[in-house]
Amino acid sequence: MGILNLTPDSFSDGGKFNNEKSALLHAEKLLKDGADFIDIGAQSTRPNAEYLSAEEEIRRIGNVISLIKKEFPEALISIDTFYADVVKFGYNEGMDVVNDISGGDFDDNLLKTVAETKLPYILMHSNSTYQNMHEKIHYEDIIVSLNYSFSKKINELQKLGIYDVILDPGFGFGKTIEDQYKMIDEVQHIGFEKFPLLIGISRKSFIYKPLGKHPTEINEETQNLHRKVLEKGAKILRVHDVAETRNLVREL
Rank of each mutant, 00 (worst) to 15 (best):
L237G: 01
L25V: 05
E178N: 05
A23Q: 05
K232E: 00
I236M: 02
D9R: 04
F37D: 03
I218Q: 00
L160D: 06
H138R: 15
T81H: 03
L146C: 04
S66T: 15
H214S: 14
D36A: 12
N155G: 11
M95T: 11
K204N: 07
K175Q: 08
N247L: 14
D100M: 08
V86E: 00
S151L: 03
I122Y: 00
Y163D: 14
N48M: 12
P8F: 02
D107I: 10
L167D: 02
I154H: 01
E135V: 11
D107A: 12
L123V: 08
L157F: 01
L25W: 05
K194H: 04
V165H: 06
A27N: 08
Y51I: 14
F195E: 03
R60E: 06
I58H: 06
F11M: 10
L4D: 01
M1P: 10
M1D: 10
K209F: 08
L160S: 06
G90F: 02
F11N: 03
I3H: 00
P73A: 11
N19H: 14
I162C: 01
P73K: 12
Y148I: 06
E28K: 15
Q223W: 11
D100Y: 06
T117P: 03
I61C: 06
K213I: 10
K88G: 09
K194R: 11
D164F: 06
F72L: 13
V64D: 02
L198P: 04
Y148S: 08
I218C: 02
I143T: 00
D185Q: 09
L25M: 12
K88Y: 11
G104P: 05
H189E: 09
A115K: 09
D179F: 01
D105I: 10
H26Y: 08
L160M: 12
R238F: 07
I184F: 03
D85K: 14
A243S: 15
E220V: 15
L30P: 00
E156F: 07
A115W: 07
N127H: 11
L25K: 13
D96F: 14
K182P: 02
I207Y: 05
G161W: 15
V242K: 02
T245S: 11
Q188Y: 13
H138E: 15
L197R: 12
A75R: 03
E220A: 14
M1K: 10
K16M: 09
H125A: 09
H226C: 14
K209N: 13
I184V: 12
H125Y: 10
L119F: 09
L52S: 07
K235M: 11
K29I: 14
Y163N: 15
N224Q: 15
E135W: 10
I184L: 11
L197E: 09
A27C: 13
